Computed example of a mutant assay.
Amino acid sequence: MERQDDDPTTAAWPSASSIHALVGAVCRLTDDPEWLIAALTEMLTAMRPPVPPTEAEVDYLLSSSAFTPTQLSRIRGRVAHGSLALEGAKSFLSALYATWSLEQVVSYMGSSRNEVLAAVEDGQLYAAKIGQSFRFPVFQFNIGRPEPLLPHLPEFIEAVHDRWNWISAAAFMETPQATLLSVSKLTPRAWLLDGGSFEDIKQITNSTRWR
């Protein structure tokens, strides 16, 4: 594959066989490879390329004994090799697989597509546009219980929709919080399912610097 003249990167293009293997792996994981590739491309494109440290920064790190020259060289090599992009892709894909498609939500809710999209617009359902398609983090669904949705879901959406991205919101809901105590620390999702007050959740969201 030839490089385009306006491509600002300096790394060599991967071989055709590497690209073919990647596409094959994606096709093995999903029945909609076009969407998954679009979503992953969108995420990677949004990432900033790593910037090498300046000479002054290197001098400071070495003089402060934070790193040895060998350690610093190893870290710089890993970053240049794409370790940050790889870790970002892992986190993104892990969060992505804990989402449902619009069609899955329509089936679960027993509603029409228009009704589900209207609920998103009204702040009754939480969705993110990923790869030009709506995805719905599964934390909001009350699977196996009479009520299909998490208690206080609209209040949670209102509290975070202008402040956090969908990955942060989903991670928060599944992370045990020190101030949500029963027999042990509970996740915000478990707290609300057990009948806990949303005000306790709101206090945490207001004091937490997620993005």
Results as ranks from 00 to 15, higher is better:
A159I: 01
H20Y: 13
M43C: 00
S101V: 04
A95V: 01
V160T: 10
S17G: 02
A169V: 11
Q177P: 03
A178L: 09
P14F: 05
M1V: 09
N206L: 11
Q132M: 07
G196S: 04
A80R: 13
W166R: 09
F136Y: 15
M109C: 09
V26R: 02
R113L: 02
G110I: 04
F67S: 01
S207V: 00
R135C: 02
S73Y: 01
Q71H: 07
I157L: 03
E174K: 12
L29N: 04
T10E: 12
I167V: 13
S15A: 12
V138D: 13
D6I: 09
L117N: 10
W35K: 10
E199I: 06
L40I: 08
V79G: 03
A190S: 15
L125S: 04
F92M: 00
I75A: 05
Y126N: 07
G131R: 01
R76C: 12
P50V: 06
G196V: 08
K185R: 14
L72D: 07
L44R: 12
A11S: 06
A170T: 14
P49G: 10
G144W: 11
P137W: 05
T68G: 09
L93C: 01
M173D: 05
G82R: 04
S91Q: 07
G24L: 04
G195I: 03
R76H: 08
Y60F: 13
A171R: 12
S83N: 04
S111R: 15
M47R: 14
